[in-house]
């Protein structure tokens, strides 16, 4: 079966057996940020974005991504520079083993596209499908809050700069 879709910004056409999951395809293609955690996707460490929304790659079959845009954690780093949310995860110590970090980060990216000003409750809701046995979710949630705070400061500074220039 031939499937054409966009993978991390690149148009991609692949030939895959019928019934191949997106998870198996991605890992088979060397996209290793997508992790196995459970047989039915309940762990959430296989979270990717499809047309901007978070999905469990294990539960998505390849034929269903035809014509769609698939994004994984690999798309976040630009010119060797971390996405500010990744930097927040690093600074807040939001990882222990780091096995679940890619899935959590992708869930948050999906949240932020839908709701750029989430509350802590929104953040927790967005992470509810990302099981983690190491952090108690304390520092991951903190990392997102820190990221939002730094972005607010940036916005305020931008506004101030604009005022000054007026």
């Amino acid at each position: 079966m031939t499937v054409s879709f966009t993978l991390n910004g690149k148009s991609t056409t692949v030939d895959v057996p019928l019934g191949r999951s997106l998870f198996d395809f991605l890992r088979g293609s060397g996209i290793f940020s997508v992790k196995f955690g459970s047989d039915k996707g309940e762990a959430g460490c296989d979270t990717v974005l499809i047309n901007g929304r978070a999905f469990n790659a294990s539960l998505v079959l390849m034929h269903s991504v035809a014509g769609k845009e698939v994004e994984t954690l690999e798309s976040l780093v630009e010119d060797g520079k971390l996405h500010p949310l990744q930097q927040s995860f690093l600074d807040a110590g939001a990882m222990q083993s780091g096995y679940t970090a890619p899935g959590m980060i992708m869930s948050i990216i999906a949240l932020l596209r839908e709701n750029p000003y989430p509350t802590e409750e929104d953040i927790r809701d967005a992470l509810a499908g990302n099981l983690d046995r190491e952090t108690g979710y304390v520092k991951p949630v903190q990392a997102v809050m820190d990221y939002l705070a730094s972005r607010c400061i940036e916005l305020v500074e931008m506004k101030n700069t604009n005022k000054n220039s007026c």
Binding site: T72, E74, L76, F89, G98
Partner: peptide
Amino acid sequence: TPRVDGYSLVTGQPVFADD
């Protein structure tokens, strides 16, 4: 002190057994 393996973990580098 930031983790010595932090960058590789936060960017999803192939550092685990199955990667």
